[in-house]
Simulated assay, not measured.
Amino acid sequence: MATRVAKPLIIVDEIDKAGVVTSDRGMSRPIVTSLLEVLDPGTAAHSECPVHRVRIDVSHISWALTANDLRNVPVPLQDRCRVLHVPDPGLPDLLALYDRMTAAIDDVETVAHGRELLTVLAG
């Protein structure tokens, strides 16, 4: 069904390292504070841009936040998200990815050397 509403996805990488955004007028605000408002269904439809001070409806935006250390992400922000823990890839995962990425390369010797190097570095 067509709704005539854009469904953008915004990815905020490494939210655990987020700092403060400062406008050209000197106004500053923690990024996490701004995200709390736009991730809350009750306030997302009538949010205010902290830099330009204009009202915006961000209720149709999907958000994906990444973090290396969840301990550095405030609990209120975690409560507004579905937290997925992605384990570090193991050597079998890396080798499978390497094999897929190099499948079309005809230089068998170079591919084999790269695979051996990956095994040494990751193992």
Rank of each mutant, 00 (worst) to 15 (best):
P30Q: 14
I10T: 14
A122G: 05
G90F: 01
A44H: 07
G90W: 06
V73I: 04
H52W: 01
E14V: 06
E14K: 14
D107P: 14
L94T: 09
R53H: 09
A96G: 03
L94F: 12
G114Y: 07
V86E: 00
R29P: 01
I31H: 05
S47D: 10
R100G: 01
L95C: 02
D16W: 09
A64T: 13
V83N: 03
L117S: 07
K7M: 14
K17S: 02
A112E: 14
E109H: 12
A67E: 02
D16G: 02
V58Y: 02
L117T: 10
P30S: 10
D93A: 03
L77W: 06
E48G: 00
L84D: 03
R115D: 09
E48D: 02
E48I: 12
A64V: 10
P89L: 04
S34L: 06
S28I: 02
R100K: 11
T66M: 09
H52C: 15
I10E: 10
V108N: 07
L84Y: 01
A6Q: 15
C49N: 14
L65M: 04
L97Q: 05
N68C: 08
T102S: 15
D106L: 14
V108G: 03
A45Y: 12
A44F: 11
R100N: 01
D99W: 04
M27A: 15
G19C: 10
V20D: 00
V111Q: 04
D57T: 03
M1Y: 09
L94I: 13
S62N: 15
S28E: 07
T66R: 01
C81N: 02
E116V: 06
V73M: 07
D106F: 04
V108M: 09
R80W: 03
A103Q: 15
V5K: 13
R82I: 14
Q78D: 05
H46Y: 00
L118V: 11
C81Y: 03
R53E: 04
A104S: 14
A6V: 10
R53P: 04
I56P: 00
V51C: 07
A67Q: 06
R82Q: 11
V54G: 05
I11N: 12
P89H: 00
A67R: 08
W63G: 01
R80N: 02
H113W: 11
A64Q: 06
A96V: 05
Q78F: 01
T22Q: 15
T22C: 15
G90P: 06
D99E: 14
D107K: 12
T66Q: 05
D13P: 05
A96S: 09
A18E: 09
I15Y: 10
G123W: 06
H85T: 14
A44T: 11
V38Y: 02
V75R: 11
E109S: 15
P92A: 00
Y98E: 13
I61E: 02
C81M: 11
V5F: 08
V73W: 07
V32W: 04
D79V: 02
L91Q: 02
V111T: 07
V111N: 04
C49S: 12
R4N: 12
D107N: 15
H46P: 01
H85P: 01
P74M: 03
I61P: 01
L84K: 03
V20C: 04
K17W: 10
V58P: 02
R29V: 07
L39P: 10
A103I: 15
V51K: 00
D24F: 13
